[in-house]
Design a protein around this nucleic acid. Structure first.
Lengths: 216, 216, 216, 216
DNA sequence: GATGAATGAGTATTCATTCAT
DNA sequence: AATGAATGAATACTCATTCAT
């Protein structure tokens, strides 16, 4: 249930991997520029470096390409995220570092994120669950780390607060990309990260309280 | 720079307004179901209650319809928002009420929000700025209210923090819709609002401080 | 159950009739030359005198054209046949005249007959029954006339013999067309008709007996 | 003029024979199911048990397969027919037995017959004569037997009558297959054979005379 | 102003055929 | 001799847009 198979006519597994790599790379470039619907299969084939006939040796329908692309993006993001999160110590300090790391990763992949936000809807009812499942898994990675902090007494949050916190920080990572037209005019990435961390951990009043806790 | 003209062949302003109303209503229903690209102009005409020929008396290109739809959505949201925000007193309590109100409004318009997220990309380079400008204006409404709170000494935030806070709450309002596949399985809307308000105002650590304020 | 509807987007019934007429005429010419599969929809549109887009305003799928063509052919044949058979008096003499008439008609439509024989298989499982039903009705016309002869004491045949006789003469009429590569080299049409009538009515031995009835 | 060569790249005659055997068997199965046009060369290769590359080592074009198939069918039919007809004694009784035998053979091969009727048109102008020639030869086998009967004084027919009689009985044998949708609902095969023999030999009036021979 | 028939560029997909390995 | 990956011409079908009535 974790990965939906996209059928290929070609048998050689290694070749399939290679050709799909070319295909996905070409497709991402194009999807970034013009979106899924405005990109033709021929353009994708050309961008991948082979003919339209060859393209269809490795997929069944155009939508398969979108699925492959989105699938690949998630895998990339998760891979990088996991790599980082395993070293997490379950302290607030370490959590902040991970969040900052994640924010920077997402900033690098902002174009891909945009594609996902805008084109995921075009996936069939069939493929969508697989994709959403991947996103849930990734949020889950953060949930685990936060839970550790709670277990270590560094944070005091119940199950539902943990989940929402994870969702929030997750979306804020993507937000840098999908609202760049607003954010990137005002903040540098590091500014953005600092400010978001502050808001995530202290909110707008917590922060006030922290400094002037006695005044109320 | 506030509104891009969509040219109509028909002169009677009142009629243009009426026909576009029908058109937009039909289009929204269809876009919700199948997205912009999968909806045909004929379908829109039929849903609007007139012929394809008539449709083209009131627009120039299919994209115009998308622009009109998105434009209308923003106007609706802003209208409701403004209506509420004018009564805002510039206190934290009143700000929280406004945010909760906004969250509920966005929950009601979640399908529209989804359409905007997924189809805005399809707007031409020409139309996009107008639309983004509207969103910036709406965020601005919240910025003003927050500024009032700061001016009243209820919050202690600088310009950049205000802006980011406004963006965050704005996105969190939309998030209930565009991440419903995850959130709406776990939270009721009111739960979601309560938890988000907590996180927005106290963060995850500010909250700790609040409860155990004495320990420091 | 007598006629399968082929959906048209155009509403004007008279126009639909007219355009389909053009379409069928063009299609028959092409099908005669190259068969259904080798004929493209564009060729049919061009032969009909309009664009590919217009073609599809009057049908849904390419197969619809084949159905329309075959349907039309049967209607034409039946029309001519019925016109003649109503005047039939129920005598052997009159039956022979009708058969000869039918043979001549089929000779005139031999290309159409060929198309039917070769392309009917290409009709979907959905459309085929309608077409076969038409052929059965046409055979039925002859069955009735033969029955009249039997009732008048001019022929002595039971139900099953009548049916088979009808089928035989029916196929022999088509045979002049679908075996022309053999028959039309040896016989003139009138020769063919005379000889077939002889064989149909007297067989190869009946004829012998007739002349020399006493010898056995 | 009796057999058209289909070029093979492979030299080993025995191998060519073997591979073509596999190919034809596979193709016949497929053509029966979906016709020539709807069957792909890949499917034929797979059904034959080898790769598409190998397939093209033994033919030049897809049409070659059709030719090979039809050629094979005719050979099969003729083989069985010849086997029987050589024993024919030149009497009416023996002729009837042969016809009945032929009818039964054709009933067994009805699917093949159907394929021939429907797909022969797809043969190029180049290959068609060879195929038609085979059919003429087969009709010729019957003509000979009938001629024997005439020579023996068992039948009184001139050249043209013999030829047409042969064609008729030949088509009636195929008819059981190509009109099965009508015939096989009404008659058993044996019934069909009996009735057709009656009609072939006595016609519809000759039969009358036979039964009431004394009345003249 | 309204209609809807006509248009044809555009697009996904298939499949016979080739050819390097 | 056998394989199967690569090719791209071909084709059914769609749909935004126009324009005569």
């Amino acid at each position: 249930m974790d990965r939906r198979e996209v059928q290929a006519s070609v048998k050689d597994e290694r070749l399939v991997e290679k050709r799909r790599d070319q295909m996905i790379k070409g497709a991402i470039t194009l999807f970034k520029q013009k979106g899924f619907h405005r990109t033709t299969t021929r353009e994708i084939a050309r961008a991948a470096g082979f003919s339209i006939g060859t393209l269809y040796e490795y997929i069944r329908k155009k939508e398969d390409i979108l699925y492959l692309v989105v699938d690949r993006m998630y895998d990339q993001i998760r891979e990088r995220l996991q790599e980082d999160l395993v070293t997490n110590l379950g302290t607030v300090e370490s959590l902040k570092l991970s969040i900052a790391y994640y924010f920077r990763e997402m900033a690098e992949m902002q174009e891909e994120v945009l594609v996902m936000y805008q084109e995921a809807k075009s996936l069939s009812k069939d493929a969508l669950p697989y994709v959403l499942n991947k996103e849930i898994q990734m949020v889950g990675l953060f949930e685990n780390v936060i839970e550790n902090c709670v277990r270590n007494g560094e944070l005091d949050l119940d199950e539902k607060q943990i989940k929402l916190f994870a969702h929030n920080l997750f979306v804020e990572g993507q937000m840098w990309g999908f609202r760049r037209w607003a954010l990137q005019k005002v903040y540098t990435l590091e500014e953005y990260i600092d400010l978001q961390l502050e808001l995530l951990f202290y909110g707008v009043q917590g922060k006030v309280n922290q400094g002037t806790g006695g005044e109320r």
